[in-house]
Design a binder for these strands. Structure first.
Lengths: 123, 123
DNA sequence: CCGGATCCGATTCGATACTG
DNA sequence: CAGTATCGAATCGGATCCGG
């Protein structure tokens, strides 16, 4: 059995679909917010500030489809649904947390670069 | 002097703009393709398979504005423009390469999860 | 309370044509 | 060669209404 070697830089490489899923700000925020916990939909909605119910539901469905998130629906009224990372999803936590750390740690520098760029271009 | 602490999970935190820039498939592919080299526009275009000239130019401009990429334009005819990562951009290489590695390494598992999900949902 | 369904505007993306 | 301009197509994202 041969194991194909994927390369996301190649135009039609299917692995690009999984890069597209994880290299996404909503995915990053949701995976970070989930961490090691089981989190209810509404709680997730408050933890990921400003996300709409639609985007949260859509992204969670995509992540569930890709085996990154597990959905636990209780048969109750009112409904109660919890989400958590699968084993596969947990392997994503550190890489995405690294992106989050980068974004926060270097924001000041990025912001200064933007101001400088905009000042130069307007002159 | 106080150093503000950013948190991308907060709705109006400005650091979210920098997360949005880096948690993006085109950004990831371009930063990976640049690596430690100076690369011409056209070469970059072939290395990042399937990217259109418009998207490549737009993304490079955004990355230049954020101080992640440096642009070197030679005053020649025909034109010659090279791009390379800045020091800031180089700090992004490993985190984004980690995403690329994840996407390639786990694609098979993701693909199986998708097939299973789709089979269950259609029944 | 947790979504699904729908509509709609905004943004992204891609193909084509063009220019210095 | 390295873009820009323009134009649709497609995707993303938010608001609203609805249903269990």
């Amino acid at each position: 059995m041969t194991t194909p070697v994927w390369n996301v830089l190649l135009e039609d490489c299917p692995s690009r679909t999984s890069l597209a899923r994880i290299a996404n700000k909503w995915t990053a925020m949701i995976v970070i917010a989930l961490g090691d916990d089981r989190v209810r939909f509404g709680e997730l909605r408050t933890q990921v500030g400003g996300i709409s119910a639609k985007v949260l539901a859509d992204t969670l469905r995509d992540l569930e489809r890709d085996g990154i998130v597990a959905r636990h629906a209780y048969d109750q009224m009112p409904p109660k649904v919890e989400y958590e990372l699968t084993d596969l999803g947990r392997t994503l936590h550190d890489p995405l947390q690294a992106l989050r750390t980068w974004a926060e740690a270097h924001y000041a520098q990025v912001s200064r670069a933007r101001e400088m760029y905009d000042r130069e271009k307007s002159s």
